[in-house]
């Protein structure tokens, strides 16, 4: 990724010439972004109107951390998504403008380009559309999107980068595309588990290996839902968190009774960094989560049949924990390309 200051300088220097350029000439000022995918990761489907380029990604990063997105300019995307926490928040429910509390736990942000839909209820089908939600949500940024766009459009650097990146003035299209472009570059797949999987047999200690075997065992069936390279099948499940849920989950967007109290299965990558857990942040620690699954969960009629008492020994709990720790990608959370 090219340096942000370099981009800004480039934009300023070329401001006058850009305004007279044709779209093809504008494109020549930008370069494709080289997305480096970890071994074993499938190729990422990227929308044709938002292929990754260096300026698009850089613009998206600047917008991601710009508090001007919120109505009172106090909250940015980065206010609730911290890189050191795999771009999740450290509290159960994040705080929006004026101290307002949202509905659900802020999810971590990585490998988003592989998700078929977004939010715990899966109500939004694309990363580009997802950008609209926190900006307009009354408990998050509470900003009418056209007003947010109008404010950001006054930023001359954004205008110039929009022209270079998308060949158009800064508008809602640019805002949604650029942030999505940056978010697609948040790729995490270099944990100890990944290194082990790629041939470094010493990357996992013996406890983590036992934990991995348990995780994938028929008895626990964790991998029944937390499957694939991203440790999720993206399905909607009830894991027996409550007998009665105050939040109807996926039913909130489908109105279908069969979707009541079901939530999107989260990825377990970097899970040691993303406490608190569950859609409402109701578990403070990973041992709490393991205890929940060990108990078999609450008697909710929608509970997935695989959620049953596990009768785990202390050693098994410890091994499972060790395996979950091995999913941490330290390179991801310290990558300077993702920092403001």
């Amino acid at each position: 990724m090219i340096n942000g200051k370099l981009i800004i300088g480039l934009g300023l220097l070329l401001a006058l010439s850009v305004s007279s350029c044709k779209p093809d000439e504008v494109d020549a000022l930008d370069r494709p972004y080289r997305l480096s995918l970890p071994a074993g990761f499938p190729s990422m489907n990227i929308p044709a109107d938002n292929e990754l380029t260096e300026v698009r990604v850089e613009l998206g990063k600047m917008l991601f951390f710009d508090k001007a997105l919120s109505r009172d300019s106090t909250v940015s995307c980065g206010s609730c998504h911290f890189q050191l926490n795999a771009f999740s928040d450290v509290v159960a429910i994040s705080t929006g403008i004026e101290g307002r509390k949202g509905l659900r736990n802020s999810p971590p942000l990585f490998n988003l380009g592989y998700h078929p839909y977004f939010f715990f209820d899966g109500g939004v089908p694309t990363l580009e559309l997802q950008v609209l939600a926190p900006v307009q949500d009354v408990n998050e940024m509470d900003h009418e999107f056209p007003e947010a766009v109008a404010r950001l459009a006054q930023n001359q650097v954004y205008q110039e980068m929009a022209q270079i990146a998308y060949g158009r003035s800064f508008d809602a299209f640019v805002l949604t595309r650029a942030i999505s472009a940056f978010e697609r570059t948040l790729v995490s797949g270099n944990s100890a588990y990944d290194k082990y999987n790629n041939g470094s047999s010493n990357a996992l200690n013996e406890s983590a290996k036992r934990g991995m075997a348990l995780f994938n065992s028929e008895r626990l069936s964790c991998n029944g839902c937390h499957s694939g390279f991203n440790f999720t099948d993206y399905s909607f499940k009830n894991n027996g968190l409550y007998v009665q849920y105050p939040d109807s989950g996926r039913m909130r967007v489908t109105a279908l009774p069969q979707d009541r109290d079901k939530f999107k299965v989260p990825s377990l990558r970097n899970v040691a960094l993303t406490a608190p857990y569950m859609h409402d942040g109701s578990f403070a620690t990973l041992p709490d989560v393991i205890e929940h699954y060990n108990s078999g969960g609450a008697a909710n009629p929608q509970k997935d049949e695989r959620i049953q008492p596990l009768l785990l020994s202390n050693q098994e709990k410890s091994d499972l924990l060790e395996f979950l720790y091995s999913l941490t990608d330290n390179e991801f959370i310290t990558n300077p390309n993702y920092a403001p």
Partner: peptide, 24 residues
């Protein structure tokens, strides 16, 4: 439709305030 693809004078644009951002 993706409302961000329309100019503000279009009936499907974000300026109309009709798009549900939390649901498609």
């Amino acid at each position: 439709s993706d409302p961000a693809t329309f100019n503000n004078d279009h009936p499907l644009s974000l300026a109309t305030g009709t798009f549900w951002t939390w649901n498609t």
